[in-house]
Design a protein around this nucleic acid. Structure first.
Lengths: 328, 328
DNA sequence: GCGCTTTTTGCAAGCGCTTACATTTTTGAA
DNA sequence: TTCAAAAATGTAAGCGCTTGCAAAAAGCGC
């Protein structure tokens, strides 16, 4: 920086201003400095900037896993929106593990972030304390908790499942089962289960079974086999996400069960695959791009003192395709 | 840090050493300091550390897109390996755009990284100059170029396609076409095309057509329609990756073409989907986890002066499934 | 207990920037 | 043209750590 200042015959302060607040420098001078910067190939030192300005222009995000396309999609949007404003994305994966998530967040905080996108709301309280102490903006995504002290941007997981149950009920289904995700460290999975129970209870029904499985195709396959061994077979199966539903669909084919004639199947998320396979998967469309974009702009905004939390719900719409039909 | 030092009745230097070089501090003292750190909830300031030590403990990675599972998978492995050694991953996506990639890399470098994982080898020369000047370790993945000055960890894209052609040729196929990825800014795509041309030329054949398309299911579908409109129809179609192949498979079904009886189809990458769909997709298995792990350990290693580049090839094996069969 | 070497600890000088404040230059109304 | 107000630039004090070097403590052979 000193070299640039010398070559351009200005002070280092001016060079710094050209880089950080170009509007504060007279255009003529600015272009002279910029020319020298280009000629000398100078690039600023991020750590020094961060130390001096206590801003890192970096936003962190913690998601359960990259292996699931729905997180990849939000991250992609987030990073595009951030890049457009000159921010960088620091990414970590928790692998659906609470302890690990806390550790990864600690990592990100140490590394220096101005904001943090989280998945779901439930986590170690220590995490929220740390973020508070460092006054790092945060937002919980994939959920909508208008009562919460933490900002949330997402959709109504339980409500979406209720609509799915209502739809199946209208088709005449009475014996329904659910293959959910592991609910232990996952509030989204839990809300989906609760939504199903609630909607069935309203109709004076109960699920034949609620199986909790890791989100994977093979777990879905196995779960269907387990369900079909039981005395009372369901006519419809609600899956915790599309990946499980896909496994169920594949296994149903394998077992010679006709979908949707003998068995209706639903998913959640609306991966592109849900549309491409045959039969198409009836599912809930998760508003991923909307979430990613809003999260980005929220996290980049300047913090006001005593700002109330932001809560924004995007609709999660029911998408009816070929995997559901009237009860046999 | 000063507070910790005061409370533990030591100097800040000792606190720093407890954090960075614990073996240099007498165990009794160290545990005293660590107790205070825990009690006060002190977390070090990453930017200050980076500035003082000129190490960031952060590794960058630039991939074309997160939307393709093969990149997600490598990133997942990379990040696990890095996290195990206390390093963080800084991620950027280039969207298969050369300019954008250069810009994203610039971003990462400014932000401060000790090493960088790149996808493929071909890019703006300025990028390599920048990395050189900042003496940032780097490695190109998904390719194996033993002649290159830049380290490469990957597999032989062209050779894999040659094996695929040989296999199809043995099955009696003579009229083959290729639906490749866009080769403009993508050396992997180009090498795959060249592999096909070379293998066919050796057999005194030439591809009926080489279509270049964006990697997407719909582009694959459209490409198959285009191919089938031509006068001379292929009996086998080699796709640039599994996503294109999947589109071709779906469209073949749609068009009433029987696979593999009327048409053989191959992919590249071996996504889990390739195994799950029916018929299963004959493809090349990309050694993603191996690449990710080795890239991580290479990038974390200390740089020696005048170290020669590392070149490591992992086998990319042919996986035969139901989408290929004898020529009609 | 002594003098030596080896290990542990403290001191303090930066690391490369940003920015509050002081100083200089420019602007514009009289 | 003049002078106060506004804008542009320079000065220099940190930002929170690491680490070379010096000083102190510990270990060791006698």
């Amino acid at each position: 920086m000193e070299d640039v200042a010398t070559a351009a015959e200005v002070s280092t302060a001016t060079v710094s201003r050209c880089l950080s607040h170009p509007e504060k420098v007279r255009p003529a001078l600015r272009s002279r400095v910029e020319e020298v910067i280009g000629r000398l190939g100078y690039t600023p030192h991020g750590a020094a900037r961060a130390l001096a300005s206590s801003r890192t222009n970096t936003i962190g995000a913690v998601i359960p896993t990259l292996s699931n396309a729905i997180f990849a999609s939000v991250i992609q949007t987030l990073q595009e929106s951030l890049a457009a404003e000159g921010r960088t994305l620091l990414l970590a994966a928790s692998d659906y593990d609470r302890k690990r998530e806390a550790q990864q967040i600690g990592n990100l905080v140490v590394r220096g972030i101005d904001g943090l996108m989280l998945t779901g709301e439930e986590r170690e309280p220590a995490v929220y304390e740390l973020l508070q102490r460092r006054s790092i903006r945060k937002v919980c995504t994939y959920v909508h908790h208008p009562w919460s002290l933490h900002s949330t941007i997402g959709f109504d997981n339980g409500g979406a499942m209720e609509r799915l149950v209502a739809y199946l009920h209208d088709l005449g289904h009475r014996r329904m089962a659910m293959i959910a995700g592991l609910s232990a460290d996952n509030d989204r999975a839990r809300e989906r289960i609760e939504g199903v129970r609630r909607a069935l209870a309203e109709r004076e029904l109960a699920p034949l079974a609620v199986l909790e499985r890791r989100y994977s195709v093979n777990e879905g396959r196995q779960a269907l086999r387990d369900l079909m061994e039981q005395a009372e077979r369901p006519t419809a199966i609600l899956c915790g996400n599309d990946v499980l539903a896909l496994g169920v669909l594949l296994e149903a084919d394998h077992l010679g069960l006709s979908v949707p004639n003998q068995l209706s199947i639903t998913g959640f998320d609306d991966l592109w695959l849900a549309r491409e396979i045959s039969p198409g998967l009836t599912t809930i469309h998760a508003p991923l791009r909307d979430m990613g974009r809003l999260a980005a702009s929220y996290l980049m905004a300047a913090s006001e003192p005593d700002e109330p939390p932001l809560h924004r719900e995007f609709p999660a719409e029911l998408v009816v395709r070929g995997s559901t039909g009237p009860a046999p």
